[in-house]
Simulated assay, not measured.
Amino acid sequence: GRGVTDMKAGLVALVAAMINIQQQGGPKHGTIRLLATMGEEVGEAGSAAFYQQGAMQDAAGLLIAEPSTVYGTAAEQKGSYDLKLTSKGKAVHSSTPERGYNALVPLIKLLNEANDYFETIPAGEVGPVRFNIDVLNGGDQVNSLPDLATALVNVRTIPEYDNDQVTQKLTDLIAAYNQQGADIKMTAIMNESPIATTADNRLVKLVQAIGKPYAGRDVVVVSSPGITDASNLAKRQPADFPFAVYGPGNMTQHQVNESLPKQMFYDFIAIYQQLFTRFLAE
């Protein structure tokens, strides 16, 4: 069912592993903190609240129980930046367009120029910047110029070209179009930054050592094209901060028939028990 892979199985596996560790008299050293969040798919309000409350201030590492590949892990991820662009014009009959201003025209031109520009940005370690024009609205009828047009854009950012740089570029483009007579404004709906830590950080090394027998092969370290709550929870951490995205799943995320093998679920409960115990002991 939807959500099994992303990431109900991972959440339950975390809870089960923590219960087992406690029943066995652990942890002997340190503390395991469960941060179960709401709104991870849109807005990440839960992890933002945890960050603002200081839940990560004394954290020695962070594990996100979401799959990156089958039995694989990730130590970096793209950011996600959702924006709304609003263009205002003046509605008139389409037979006399010179008396009004078509709100769609400058918005479409700006979006095309931005799309062409972001395709020129060199790809980084996690891949290229992705500028996605997802929703475009404007106009009510075919014989009248629209006085309002809006666009919803999602930008997948990378550490080498982050959300602030996207903001600056779009701000400059908007200013240029407004100087030519347009009236375009930009509003951020979600602003989650990319996260990059070293692929050989301490947590990833433990994941590779403990997970190999369960995977039946070396545990690969990949770059995640999506975002997780780490966008909030791991921000402003040093490059060697112990961070890993590692959870049960067979990469069927966001489908109505998400699924995973039952044994994989049990494997990750056992993996998490060993991972937390060894991480805190070292």
Rank of each mutant, 00 (worst) to 15 (best):
T96V: 12
D164T: 12
D162H: 07
V126Q: 12
R33W: 01
P194R: 07
F279L: 04
T5C: 06
Y214F: 14
A270I: 07
H254T: 09
P194T: 01
R2G: 06
M7G: 00
A48M: 11
P248G: 08
A244Q: 08
R202H: 12
I195H: 07
S80E: 10
A17S: 15
H254I: 11
H93R: 04
K185A: 14
I133M: 13
L170V: 05
K235L: 13
A281M: 10
A49H: 11
P122Q: 04
E76T: 07
N154H: 09
S259E: 10
G1H: 06
A209V: 13
V256D: 12
A49L: 15
P122F: 12
T197G: 03
A215K: 13
S259N: 10
I189F: 09
G181T: 07
I174A: 05
G79V: 11
M18Q: 04
D218F: 05
A45G: 10
E44C: 14
M18R: 08
Q52F: 03
H29D: 14
T252W: 05
V135I: 14
I227W: 11
G10N: 02
Q273H: 10
L62K: 01
F131E: 13
A9N: 01
P238S: 03
A55W: 14
G46N: 08
E119I: 09
S68L: 09
G1E: 01
I108A: 06
V204F: 07
F50H: 05
G226F: 14
T150R: 10
G30P: 00
Y71N: 05
D6R: 05
I195G: 05
V219T: 07
T37C: 11
L85D: 00
K205N: 15
A9L: 02
Y214L: 06
V142W: 06
V135E: 02
S144K: 12
T198W: 08
G138P: 00
L11E: 08
Q52N: 14
N143E: 10
M56A: 14
N115W: 09
Q179W: 04
D164H: 14
E258Q: 06
D267V: 04
V222Q: 14
Q165R: 13
R130G: 13
D82Q: 11
I184E: 01
L260G: 01
L63Y: 02
N137D: 13
G89V: 00
E76P: 00
K28Q: 15
I158H: 05
F241H: 10
F268T: 13
T252H: 09
